[in-house]
Each structure stands twice: as C-alpha cells, then as structure tokens.
C-alpha cells in the first residue's frame, strides 16, 4: 500500500499530519463514486433507523381494526396524490393485519441494519481471531482451524443456517447466531490470507529482532496491517447477511410476527402478490436498496483500499 500512497504524497505538503495512511485512504475512498453513493444511501438508512419513531406515522405493530375505518390490504392512500381527505393516509397501504406498511418498512430498517452489523460483527470477531492465530502460528494449529473452516464452507451456508435454526429453535436471535456461525469461515480465510502475507514483511521481522513477543507482533504489527481486506469483505458480508436473514424470516425461521422485519413481511403476504402487490413490493424494495448500498460501498472500498483486487 505504501507504494500506492506515494503518488498522492505531493498533493498536500503543508500539513504533514494529514498524510497519515488513514487519511490518504479516506481521500481515495471519496474518489470512488460507488463508495460515495453506497455510503450516502447507507447514511440515509442509518438516519431512518435512528429516527424511525419520528418518521413513522403509526406504531409498526399496532393493529388498526376498530380505530380507523379501513379494510385490510387496502391500497396506498396519499392525500397529495388525490386520495380523498376523509380517508386516513397510509402511504404504502395497510397489510393483512391492518397495520401501516410504511411504518413497518421504516422500523424494518432498524431490524435489518441490526441484523447486518451484529451477525457480521460476531463473525468477524471470531473469524479474525481464528484466522489470525492460524495464519501466524501455522503448522498443526493452522491445519486444525482451517480444515474445520473448510468443513463449514463445504455445506451450502444457507442450508447450514436452516439446520442450526432447526436445532436451536426459530426466532430472530437464533437466526442471527446461525448466520453469524456460517459466515465465520469467510472472515477466517480472508484474515488468514492477509496475515500470511503481512507476516513476511520485514517490519514484522524487525519487531521480532527488537524483542517483541508473538502477542505483540500479531496484535500490534500484523493484525492492523491485515485489516483492510477484512473491511471490504465485512461490508459486502453485511449485504449477504441481511439477505440471508430476510430469507430465513421469509421461511418463518427468523424474525417472528409481529416484528416488522422485511423478510417476514414478504413471507406473510406472499400469497397476495397478485391481489395486493404493494405489500410485497415495498419490503422487497427496502431489502434491495439496503443490500445495494452495502454492495456499492463494499465495491468502492475494495477499489480504494485494495486496488489489486479490482475485477
């Protein structure tokens, strides 16, 4: 990476402190259009998640029967677009249980982002530890860890997740755990590969020559320099995790009703796709936008952080 950053060196000579690798990398990221677009969408989604109670006109789990004069699965009603003023406004309509779909989609952002960050966070922490120890130690320990990871990878991850949920029982928490577990090998492999290349660097030998312990070398010299590919993988992994969680919920194994989870919303209204398409269209759209934002950000980060991986 050092060789690449050399080229941007001359841009900003006056304030040398701004030339840390982190800042240079940030500048490169900003030059990646897809990263900026993905990051912006993600930023908006995070704002939506934070301010969900303000943005949502209704409680997402509130059943409106008897409170409003409205039938289940009625189409969107937007006053600005000519919906009669005497009818209550539901921007995205109401679902089969007469709940405001717009509020549910809004609150679904919270659930999905939480799913994405928590599962990937869990998988990264454990995967990084396993991959780093394996890659640094080598030998039988490395073999043991990586062969176990290979076994995990040999199963189709989604089937494995279904199996884990079947054993642990359905529910959002168990679904998160299942998705986290099945994605560990991906991160373990990325970190191991990265550690293997970083540990051959001369500054690692230098640290050893200075008397650094293996703990010191692994955690202060090698790991920080092995992280960049992990950031990329993690960002892309969040997209996959959100999709997997939505799929599990769609199958009724993940988030349980009445939790406003997009996959659950899709699953419970899937039979109405022809009679009330808005009930599946908008949760689906929400999933797509969220996944797209992470994918764009991940691709952009990859191009910025690790140009060698491009295409």
């Amino acid at each position: 990476m050092a060789a690449i950053t050399d080229t941007t060196n001359s841009e900003d000579k006056k304030d040398y402190r701004s030339n840390s690798l982190a800042r240079l990398t940030l500048r490169r990221i900003i030059r990646q259009r897809s990263a900026v677009i993905g990051g912006t969408i993600l930023g908006l989604l995070i704002l939506v998640a934070i301010f969900a109670p303000v943005l949502a006109p209704y409680d997402p789990e509130e059943v409106l029967i008897g409170k409003e004069d409205i039938k289940k699965r009625s189409s969107p009603c937007i006053h600005l677009l000519g919906c009669p003023e005497d009818q209550p406004q539901h921007i995205l309509g109401v679902d089969g249980n007469v709940r405001d779909v717009f509020s549910r989609v809004i609150f679904g952002t919270r659930v999905s982002l939480f799913i994405g960050f928590s599962t990937v966070g869990f998988a990264i922490v454990i995967g990084t530890f396993l991959g780093a120890v394996g890659g640094y130690a080598g030998g039988w320990l490395d073999n043991l860890i990586m062969r176990f990871m290979d076994v995990l990878l040999a199963f189709p991850s989604f089937l494995l997740a279904i199996a884990i949920v079947s054993v642990l029982g359905r529910g959002l928490q168990n679904a998160l755990l299942a998705i986290g577990i099945v994605t560990i090998p991906v991160y373990a492999r990325v970190v191991r590969a990265s550690v293997l290349s970083v540990k051959e660097q001369e500054y690692v030998s230098a640290s050893l020559a200075l008397g650094g312990s293996h703990f010191h070398i692994l955690f202060t010299r090698i790991l920080p320099n092995a992280i960049p590919p992990l950031i990329v993988q993690g960002t892309l992994g969040i997209a996959t995790a959100i999709l997997d969680a939505a799929a599990l919920s769609f199958l009724g194994l993940g988030a349980q009703p009445p939790t406003p989870e997009w996959g659950t919303m899709l699953g419970s209204e899937r039979n109405q796709v022809f009679t009330a398409p808005h009930l599946v269209f908008f949760p689906g759209l929400a999933i797509m936008i969220t996944v797209l934002s992470f994918n764009l950000l991940g691709d952009g980060l990859r191009d910025a952080i690790d140009p060698r991986l491009k295409q």
Binding site: M1, A2, A3, T5, L21, Q201, E202, Y203, S205, A206, R221, P224, N225
Partner: peptide
C-alpha cells in the same frame, strides 16, 4: 528493503 522494513501505519 527500506520500503518493507517500516510499518506503513
């Protein structure tokens, strides 16, 4: 290698 012998971070 003076490029590889210093931690870039």
């Amino acid at each position: 290698d003076p490029y590889a012998s210093l931690d870039p971070r």
